[in-house]
Amino acid sequence: MEQPVIIVENLVKKINDRFILNNISFNVERREIFGYLGPNGAGKTTTLRIILGLMRPTSGKALVLEGNLSKDINLRRKVGVILENDGLYNKLTAYENLDFYSRIYGVSNSSERDRRIKKLLDLVGLYDEKDKKVGYYSRGMRRRLAIARALIHDPEIVFMDEPTSGLDPEAKIIVRNLIFQLARERDVTIFLISHDLDEVERLCSRVAILVGGRIVALDTIRRLMHSLERRSIEITFKNMQDAMEVAKYLDNMGILYNLRGNSIRIFYQDSNISRVLKPLVMMGLKIIDIKGNVESLYDVYLKIVRGG
């Protein structure tokens, strides 16, 4: 079996006697898009900085491709990084920025550099803007250029810290498609920190949810949603009396519900919905609307973060 490309084991980080990370462990497999979620101050960026070798752990280890990025300078050539800020020089053009970073990452052949830069600018849709200073770029264009910058040396793993934060919906879709394309076509492993749960749900195969420096959930999105899923159905009756009658019936059955005027939201597990609905139909109540609800990653996330 192939060794995971990122191994984080019992990672602890204490700053001024406060635990920023408390015994974090997870692995990321090759070609995986791994989502790392959590509320502000949960320790996501600290984890990333430790993995990237920018901070030291108090105890535990964080390995990338079986090595330590803080000690092995050459290993950094296999890793691309998009941090919260784009890391671009405003006074340089897009082409000059990519040229600078490709030289730093050791792409020494000038024709190879030129080929890669043009190919990546084309990929992120900025080829026509290549001679424009980055200072004049919009936030979305900068983000796309940051992705090109992170890929200039053909890395095996790309770490992304909120790549779509602050972007308008259209720019978000472009960046999201780029990330998806990367994992699919270039076999790049992606470690994605994001606040955008819709994005994580669409892109990631597995997620870890971090709360207060601890991982409280680590699984595939499908399994996480299944384990915490609470399906519900909302029935609207013609009059309130009918709704109250159903509430009494549900009380007797021990089924959870939420009554709001002439609407009632019934929560059920797995396939017992027919057990609930059949008697309601038999009671001859006047139903005017039925809506089914399946929870999104957002609901699951809130439940986990709030300890629900």
Binding site: L52, L69, I73, V81, L83, N85, D86, G87, I104
Partner: peptide
């Protein structure tokens, strides 16, 4: 302030 130093420190440049 613009995060360029942090990005550079992740690169092979010491």
């Amino acid at each position: 302030r613009e995060g360029v130093i942090e990005t550079i420190l992740c690169s092979p440049m010491k």
